[in-house]
């Protein structure tokens, strides 16, 4: 197990560097730059800018310098936001996205697992149909539709909740629900399917034959196997959660990393883009590693070399 973890950890850094390189190429290839405005700049001013930011060097020198700095975890300063270092910006804004994402996923797990389990147990009941229909909607309604709908009802009609920004717990309710919806839907359906499959298996029959209470059969015997699809879903879900936070952050004006990331691309703010890309790719790889490891804990049949 340890060897497995080490191997995976070792590959994270080269992968991140690869991702950074590819991103760098894409940024350079895309037309436009961080200083262009409606009017074309007088060439002298453009020269000044290039000199100030080291853009007048040949591309391989720029690449080399950049890589060298990155290996020392120095992503430099943002080109757009004067005097703010990339590390500082990421450190300041990531917590918002993290909190948002984590709360959303926990909520999704809570709702999804509950709905899925109950639906599986009371198959073809009203709850089953109702919750699976709601799940279907949760899957098909995009978060940029759901969010505004919630805002319409709770902020603009009832005036209960603030329509945007970040503040106390009241501000969190709608963004978290909006983000969680699609995952709750997936998890509900996955759990239900997983549980149904497990409940049909022989060892559940054995458990019942032993005279165990139905609740124990469910929680002790069925759950472990039933939620495995949910665990394997968590890996890719985390990646898409990151993308989901971008939309939610934009709609609710939350100062999270997703918002900043989109803005940095539109601004062609190269150091910031690279910093965020490196950070996110490492994050995803580590998250996937954790998911894989927990897989091993859940299912004793899986052993990593």
């Amino acid at each position: 197990m340890l060897k497995f973890i080490l191997k995976r950890l070792l590959i994270i850094v080269p992968m991140a560097l690869l991702v950074v390189t590819v991103t760098w190429v894409l940024i350079r290839v895309a037309p436009g730059n961080f200083y262009s405005t409606e009017r074309s700049l007088p060439p002298a001013i453009e020269e000044n800018i290039k000199k100030k930011y080291g853009l007048d060097q040949p591309w391989y020198i720029q690449y080399g310098t950049m890589m060298g700095n990155i290996l020392r975890l120095d992503f430099g300063d943002s080109l757009k936001y004067q005097g703010q270092s990339v590390n500082e910006i990421i450190a300041r804004h990531f917590p918002y996205s993290a909190i948002l994402g984590l709360l959303a996923y926990l909520l999704a797990l809570g709702i999804g697992l509950f709905a899925g389990i109950v639906a599986a147990l009371k198959q073809n009941s009203a709850f089953d149909y109702g919750s699976m229909a709601a799940a279907m909607l949760g899957l098909s309604v995009p978060n940029f539709v759901l969010g505004p709908l919630l805002v319409l009802l709770f902020s603009l009609y009832l005036y209960w909740l603030p329509p945007a920004r970040w503040g106390g717990p009241l501000y969190l309710i709608m963004p978290v629900v909006t983000l969680a919806a699609i995952y709750a839907a997936y998890i509900a359906r996955l759990t239900r399917a997983g549980m149904l499959e497990v409940m049909r298996s022989d060892y559940i029959r054995t458990a019942r034959a032993k005279g165990l209470k139905e609740s124990k059969v469910l929680l002790k015997h069925a759950l472990r196997g039933g939620i495995i699809p949910v665990v394997s879903f968590t890996g890719p879900a985390l990646a898409s959660l990151l993308a989901g936070t971008v939309v939610v952050e934009k709609v609710f004006a939350i100062p999270g990393l997703g918002n900043i990331f989109i803005q940095s691309v539109l601004n062609r703010d190269e150091p910031l883009i690279l910093g965020i890309v490196a950070f996110l790719s490492i994050l995803i790889m580590v998250a996937n590693l954790i998911v894989d490891i927990s897989y091993g804990f859940l299912d004793p049949r899986i052993r990593y070399e």
Partner: peptide, 19 residues
């Protein structure tokens, strides 16, 4: 069940809980 009447099944791999 399990106390006064007990049952064993055909395939012990699937009849035992792998987890």
């Amino acid at each position: 069940r399990g106390k006064r009447i007990a049952m064993i099944f055909q395939d012990p791999m699937t009849s035992l809980n792998p987890f």
